[in-house]
Amino acid sequence: MLTSFIRTVLLLFFVILCLRLMGKRQIGQLQPSELVVTILLSQIAATPMQDNDIPMLNTVVSILALAGVEILLSALSMKSGTVRMLVDGSPIEVIADGKIDQNALKRLRYTIDDLLEGLRQKDIFDISQVQSAVAETNGGLSVQLKAGEQPLSVSQFGKDAAEPGVPAVLVKDGKPDQAALKSAGLDLDTLQKLLKRENAAVEQVFLLTLDATGKTFLVRKESLK
């Protein structure tokens, strides 16, 4: 039992290390080869956690080989379009110029229900609004609306809009983020002054953000029950 516990902890950290090395994306964004490797990795790691008969070295070797080959395959796919096409496939246009390509749907084994579901997930409930839709290699659907259905943008009004920027997260869970303070050109004294304006101490702050216009957003810590 103790052996199982030690193996589980060791293998968990080892798998996390390998996944970090491979630079995994979110499950929904994985290419087919990456999905295969992720599933295989989890299976290979799980078996010796439960079966003490299998030497751990076998598992380590298998995981290292998988991770290494996947990294090299990814690198090769980046360099070569042919390899990319062979390993991951190509995106396929399922709606072109507002018309559904039924042959493409058949090739992909997509039913019309799958297509409509993909559109609904993009908040599009009326297929007639779609100019173009592409089934990506990771299984997702990319959609372009018809010109008349697209939301208006500031530039279409002939106006200039200030770039919004990303608000800096200055305090998280009572602790100041030194890197964020530095990139916002602030120091701890300035932070204290900011918090004094809000009648709060750093330890009392759950979240504090500062945007490019100098506006702050503060959430105080709640006393947990």
Binding site: L21, G23, L57, A65, A67, G68, I71, L72
Partner: peptide, 23 residues
């Protein structure tokens, strides 16, 4: 990217070397 590729090559080499040495 280059670092990752080197890490990938090392992983493959290490796993092969360990399994060969073991065998």
């Amino acid at each position: 990217m280059k670092g990752r590729v080197i890490a990938g090559i090392l992983c493959v080499f290490l796993s092969f070397a360990v399994s060969l040495a073991g065998f």
